[in-house]
Structure formats: C-alpha cells, structure tokens
Design a binder for these strands. Structure first.
Lengths: 202, 202
DNA sequence: CCAAAAACTTGCGTGCCCCGCATCTTTGCG
DNA sequence: CGCAAAGATGCGGGGCACGCAAGTTTTTGG
C-alpha cells in the first residue's frame, strides 16, 4: 500500500473518530463540521471530500464493521450449515475490534450514555439505517455465494440478509431497552434461533 | 372533526402530494421547498411547520399507508392465526388506496420511471427507512396485543414486526429488479411463507 | 534522478435549508 | 359579539454541501 492510500485511510479514520467522539461528548447539534475538521487537523472543506455529511462520518465505522462481517461470512468453511455460519459471524461481530484499544475511554459510563443519546438522534437514524441497507447488500451477496442462488433472480439471499440485519437491530434495541442486565450474545442467539424456527407465536 | 383540523389535514396532504409530484416529474434536486410550497398554495415558511424537510413530505404518504396497515392488523379477528392475519394485511396494503383515484396520472410509464429514480435518491432512502422503523414500532405493538406478549420485556413482537417489514422491502426491491413480470402479491406471499418456514436453504 | 502528470488539499463563493421569533389572521367557544 | 387559542407568514440567522480554481504532494516513466 502506497503512502498516498495510507494517508487517506488515516485522515478518514481521524475524521470519523473525531466526529464520533465530539458528538458523544457534546451532542449532535453542538458539534459543527468545522469542529470535526479541526479535531482531525484538516480544513473544513476537506471533510466533505471524505464524507457527505456529519452523519456519514459518524456511521462509517459502523458500516465498516458490518462490511467486515459480510466478508467473514464468505470466509466460513463451505460445508458449514448456513444458519450456523450466520450465527457464528453475528456473534463474532459483537466483540470489540482492535480500534477500541487504540482509543481508550476514560469514563465508561458517560460514554455509554453519550452513545445512547447519539443513536437516538433522528438525523442519525436515517444514516444508520442506510448503512445497514448497504451492508445488507453485501451480506446478500455472501449468502448467494454460499447457497448457490442467483442474486438477481432469487429473493432468498436478500431475504436472509434482510432478516439477519433485522435480528441484529432488534437485539440491539432490546438491549438498550432492558439495560445491560441481559447479554447481547444471548439476545442475538435467541433472535436468530427464533427466526430459523419460523417465529412461531410463543 | 372541526374546520381547523380538516384544513390542516388538507394542507398537509396538498404539500405531500405536491412534493411527490414535482420530485417525480423533475428530480429531487430540481425541486426547491419553495416550489412545493407554491404548488400547495402556502408560504415556504409554512412548509416547515408541517414537515422537517423535503424527504419527510415525500415519505409521509408512505408512512400513513404503513400505519394504516398496523391498524388493520389490530382489527383482524382475534382468533385468527398470527401469520394468516399478517399475510392478509400485507397483501391488502398493496391495493392502491382511494387517494390514487383523486390524482390520476397521465403518463403511467413516465410516472413509474420517475418514482424509480426518486426512491433511488440517497437522500430519500434514509427517510424511507426511518418511516419503516416508525411503522415497525406500531406493528410491534399490534403483534404484542395479539399474542399477549410484553413490548418492553419480550423480543418477540419486535422481531416479528421487523421481519415483516423486511419481507415487504425485499419483495418491493425484487419487484423493481425483475420488472413487472412477476406480481407483488406473489412475491410477498412467497417471502412471508419462507420466513414462516424458517428460511431453510433452497 | 527529474520533470510531467495525477491526486489531494484548501479557500472562496453560492444556493439551499431548517428553525426561532415576532406579528398578523383565522377559528372555536361562551 | 368578543376573546383566547391556534395557525400562517415574514424576516433573519446559523449551517451545510458542493462546484471551481488555485496551490501542494505523491506517483510515474524515461
């Protein structure tokens, strides 16, 4: 990888991280694009060369994570049953990545609260959902490759991808509602199991 | 219903309809909020008393439709099996509402093309997905009422609602991909059936 | 090793958008 | 009828996204 690409990746990461940190700390409307650019050490104009808006910058890490999960699904052993592979990848994706170690958080509690109010921001939910839709397309491709179905002719891979993202979102939302008493891995496993069972009424 | 509320509803409908029509005809960025307000016979400032932005105005009809579907689900006979009720409502919601008769379209072909490019607009997809999420909450409430589950404690109603919306979206997207050769009702029925069967690999 | 080319950053200017506030008009009600 | 509540409108401010035209840095090819 050349110097050029490396610097681009660094700038992009710096901008995204700065956006997240500032918004979590101060709230969405109390952060101007100008602030984010300054925190990342670039001009305000440059921010828009990397992201179309505040929302995109914030969501980009999330999107990367989901994309990586789609890749992981491709990388699972070919013989493995589909739902086994999906569950494994979904659970693996919950583990905090190495980028968390690079940006330690002082007050864990305040950070979590900030994140909650951040994702509650209406302006961001659109961007979050769009990121989900983007990732969904890649998951669908992975599922198609795995099951030998045709992306453009069969609904099946899209259906699976969409439903898996739904399970993810629902488990996440439920975890926020219920507090940290129940563990995400359990919720996600339950959600996926229920879906694979056809969602019979309880 | 008093005069006051009736006029509000009319203005709201006029704004939403004008927004859709203009954007379908001219494209998203070639329509200014000012144009929409003018077409609805109202001041530009008033537009923002009804909608937070162009996207919201365009999406509001879609959202109303989904909301009505959630109500329909509540209205189904109580003894009916859940998935039967859901499928019925999902199919009923495909029928064009009475508002279509009030706004006949001259060139059916051009209109459909315009709608396709409209919903392809990135700026709108966020709003569309947000509307879906809003409706999802109401569907979840309806499912909870039907199955005697607790919205805040059980994941089940959210899971069902989310997955049903997913089926809807996937069927819609597939219909756009495949062209009008295959009928939406068939696609939706297939999607829901597959989900109720636990999405076994084909 | 060096110059031309390609890629990236930056400043500036433009058009649009969302919203708070004050004011004026309309509606609902006793 | 007359007053209180609700809505419409005009004005102005704070921002944001992006096109364009330099300036600067990396890459490339001889």
């Amino acid at each position: 990888m050349g110097l050029r690409e490396r610097k681009k990746a660094e700038t992009r990461a710096a901008l995204s991280w700065a956006a997240i940190r500032l918004v979590v700390e101060r709230g969405f409307d109390n952060v101007k694009v100008e602030d984010i650019a300054a925190a990342a050490g670039v001009s305000p104009r440059t921010f828009n060369n990397y992201f179309a808006g505040k929302g995109d910058a914030i969501v980009s890490r999330h999107l990367d994570r989901l994309r990586r999960a789609a890749d992981d699904l491709r990388a699972r052993p070919a013989g493995e049953p589909l739902w086994t592979a999906i569950t494994a990848v979904a659970l693996a994706q919950l583990e905090p990545g190495p980028e968390l170690a690079a940006h330690p958080v002082a007050d864990q509690e305040a950070w979590a609260a900030g994140v909650r109010t951040m994702i509650a921001e209406p302006a961001l939910q659109g961007d979050l959902l769009r990121a989900g839709a983007l990732a969904e397309a890649e998951v669908a491709a992975a599922v198609a490759g795995r099951t030998g179905t045709d992306l453009s002719k069969d609904m099946y891979p899209h259906l699976v991808a969409s439903v898996v993202m739904a399970a993810n979102n629902v488990a996440q939302a439920h975890s926020l509602r219920a507090g940290p008493h129940v563990s995400m891995p359990e919720l996600l496993t339950e959600a996926l199991a229920r879906i694979a069972a056809g969602l019979p009424p309880p």
